[in-house]
Design a protein around this nucleic acid. Structure first.
Length: 743
DNA sequence: ATACCATTGTTTTTT
DNA sequence: ACAATGGTAT
């Protein structure tokens, strides 16, 4: 019995307990993933459970992919029919199949954060609310909170106790209506709609209850009310639910996660078994002891005893630096030192921080030192303008009622369909109660436009109609190329901005690659999968859904060699030989917004615990005495979390200003012929105009065209160029700012 | 209709 | 410091 061989006693018991409710309290680094994978494998191989009867829910796509891969490797059984995914992806799948019971069609689109804000702003306008008092961000946070608690607009309005809440309720109500008009849902809807679907259609719920005989839930401590309800509905009949989590790692309270869900699991399920995994296989004794000391300061907590057989290891390295730039330089120099002297590789390092903004200084330092790195944060690739534009086109093709998408691209590239024309279209569409897209070829609507606008609008409409006919008939790559061609998008990129356009075109190519990849994977699945063909089909709808739910954490590739930069939240579930925790300062970490609230402070402390326990061998903690915030320097106090680590585990250093400072001031690095020459190629794409330009060179400028350099002044970062552009005279340009390219 | 400038808010964390 | 917005000039 291979599956059980490499497990300790508690782990083995957790795997073998398969009937009835089971709670696994898994401390950091206790082999949680291993247990989950083994359990799924055990069910399939030893208990002959069909893959289709297992539902495994993880917190991230990355965790889902990892589970899938490891399980297939362990058993050799295809996991294709097994439902593994995040709450969101599982719910999309269910909603697509059951859309007949819902307020939308099966080709619904998923609005991201940005689309959501745009729509809320429109609602605010429509209702005549002051968008200063009701800013879109705050409103969407409130709506999200309501949805996480499964409150419909009606319920919210009923419970509203003041004017603000009443108005939020009204906005919420209209927002839902507009979403329905656009055949769109937001992230929170995915879960809430599925729960409502189950509650209102017992016969549908029953189908899924019968199907999912075994349910595994990862990171149970981070479930919110709607997710909790979703799980409970599904598990209600068979009660074969296995929840895995660690209350000490609950860090998503701000997103509605309720730590009570895991704490009351035993009350929720009678005859529940509880298994604790307390042996840590990840970190050294010192790292573990230090982490345990910090988390012990939380009052609201179940005692837990995490231990390890590992050696003591080095003490926690704590360094105080004069400012944020020296902090960054220190981190980068230390990485390079460890790499050269102690045989670490770039991929062994993680630099982590509390907020994304902190990454900028660190990135600067990495660029200067020429280290390869990758920043993980949000959905950067899919948020690029050219990608979002393309997505808007695609969304419109499958769902013409999507007005947010239409508004985005109707005049992108420029087709002389401006704000006033849009206004007329929208007014007319509202009056006739049709979508704006349908108004585009409505005679009465067109009559309200100027002749030239009419021509442009019709041209756009016909173009889109022709593209629409090709959807799901030609390959994704063909469709994309055709789209960029006929819409003139590619041409506009090339012409308007030859320099930046090139990078954008590369992104578009990367997008094609992603599409082709999706198509291939999905086609593979179609062949082998009778049961679930619909959900895996290589359709544009499914491709878009996958993208909406994708993050750049998903494509984490272990074989690539770079330093990882990420937020503390994003590190959950990951581990690194060497971890740098930066910005250990009051107001940064713990964050200023949590200083006054004891509950929030405890969540910050759990976050600290999560971050510290990511480290296997070495843990560095750093802080700056002074930090650039909102553009000017502020003096910072040491984080309380440092004070909570007993001195016996700490090796503290304070690096003051001169003369040591120069060592950590990377500005002068080249001149002093420092020990680091940097061999690796950075994957930094930003400032690529570090090119040698001399008098007489021909250069291409984004706006002025081709010119000849007639004079070069200054040096280093401040090179000033005088360039003669035929017919436009001599322009004086700063090389670092000017969009220039040598020709 | 567009391009440019001034002003504003924005910074927690994410599917 | 920066991005996003809104207003004004072309």
């Amino acid at each position: 019995m291979d599956i059980l061989r490499n497990l300790n006693k508690a782990q083995k018991m957790a795997v073998e307990t398969i009937e009835g409710p089971l709670l696994i309290l898994a401390g950091a680094g206790s082999g949680k993933t291993k247990v989950l994978v083994s359990k799924a494998a055990y069910l399939l191989q030893e208990k002959i459970v069909k893959p289709g009867n297992i539902l495994a829910i993880t917190f991230t796509n990355k965790a889902a992919n990892e589970m899938r891969e490891r399980m297939e490797k362990m058993t050799g059984i295809s996991s294709r029919n097994m439902w593994i995914g995040t709450f969101h992806s599982i719910c999309v799948r269910i909603l697509r199949r059951e859309s007949e019971h819902c307020a939308f069609d099966s080709n619904f689109v998923i609005y991201d954060d940005h689309d959501q804000q745009v729509l809320i702003k429109k609602c605010l306008q429509e209702l005549g609310f002051d968008d200063k008092k009701y800013n879109a961000r705050a409103v969407s946070a409130n709506i999200s909170k309501a949805k996480n608690l499964l409150l419909t607009p009606y319920m919210y309005l009923t419970e509203a106790s003041n004017e603000w809440e009443e108005n939020i309720g009204k906005i919420y109500e209209l927002y839902q209506k507009r979403l329905a008009n656009n055949n769109a849902v937001d992230f929170d809807d995915l879960i809430m709609c599925t729960v409502k679907l189950f509650e209102q259609n017992p016969q549908v719920l029953q189908i899924y209850q019968n199907r999912f005989q075994y349910i595994l839930v990862d990171e149970y401590q981070d479930t919110n009310t709607s997710q909790y309800t979703f799980i409970n509905l599904l598990a209600a009949s068979k009660k074969n639910i296995c929840a895995v989590g660690d209350p000490d790692q609950s860090i998503y309270g701000w997103r509605g996660a309720d730590i009570k869900n895991i704490l009351s699991f035993e009350k929720d399920y009678e005859n529940c078994r509880v298994i604790k995994l307390e042996q840590n296989y990840r970190s050294t004794k010192n790292i573990l002891s230090a982490s345990n000391s910090v988390i012990a300061n939380n009052i609201q907590r179940k005692e837990k005893d995490l231990w390890t057989e590992a050696e003591d290891g080095e003490l926690i390295h704590y360094h105080e630096l004069p400012d944020d730039r020296s902090e960054a330089a220190f981190v980068v120099e230390t990485i390079e030192l460890l790499r050269r002297m102690h045989g670490y590789e770039y991929k062994n390092f993680a630099i982590i921080y509390r907020t994304h903004t902190q990454s900028r200084v660190l990135e600067d330092a990495l660029v200067k030192y020429k280290l390869p790195y990758k920043i993980f944060g949000g959905q950067r690739f899919y948020e690029r303008k050219e990608i979002k534009d393309t997505l808007a086109y695609l969304r419109l093709l499958i769902n013409p009622t999507d007005e947010i998408a239409l508004a985005r691209i109707i005049n992108e590239p420029k087709r002389s369909i401006g704000a006033s024309t849009w206004q007329k279209l929208e007014t007319s569409a509202r009056a006739k109660d049709i979508s704006v897209y349908n108004a585009l070829d409505d005679e009465a609507t067109l009559d309200t436009l100027t002749p030239s606008a009419r021509k442009n609008v019709l041209g756009f409409y016909n173009m889109m109609e022709e593209l629409k006919n090709k959807v799901n008939k030609i390959s994704m790559a063909e469709l994309l190329n055709e789209l960029w061609q006929v819409t003139g998008y590619k041409k506009a990129l090339e012409e308007n901005d030859p320099i930046a356009g090139e990078a954008r075109l590369e992104n578009l190519m990367e997008f094609v690659a992603a599409a082709v990849d999706f198509e291939n994977t999905a086609k593979l699945a179609e062949v082998s999968d009778e049961e679930d063909a619909l959900a895996n089909e290589a359709t544009l709808e499914n491709f878009l859904a996958q993208i909406s739910l994708a993050t750049d954490m998903d494509n984490w590739e272990d074989n690539q060699n770079f330093v990882s930069l990420l937020t503390m939240h994003a590190t959950k579930g990951l581990e690194f030989p060497v971890v740098f925790m930066t910005g250990l300062e009051e107001k940064i970490f713990p964050h200023s917004r949590s200083l006054l609230d004891e509950t929030e402070m405890e969540e910050e402390r759990r976050l600290c615990y999560v971050a510290m326990t990511r480290a296997e061998k070495l843990l560095y903690m750093t802080r700056a005495k002074s930090r650039n915030i909102y553009g000017n320097y502020q003096s910072m106090q040491e984080s309380r979390f440092i004070k909570e680590i007993p001195e016996t585990y700490l090796d503290a250093h304070c690096i003051d200003f001169a003369p040591i400072r120069s060592r950590y001031e990377y500005k002068n690095l080249d001149k002093t012929n420092h020990l680091f020459t940097g061999r690796a190629k950075p994957n930094y794409q930003g400032n690529t105009n570090v090119q040698l330009i001399n008098i007489g060179d021909k250069v291409q400028h984004a706006k002025f065209g081709v010119g000849v350099v007639v004079q070069v002044q200054g040096k280093g970062d401040d090179i000033q160029l005088n360039i003669a552009f035929p017919g436009q005279g001599i322009k004086v340009l700063m090389q670092k700012y000017a969009p220039l390219k040598k020709v």
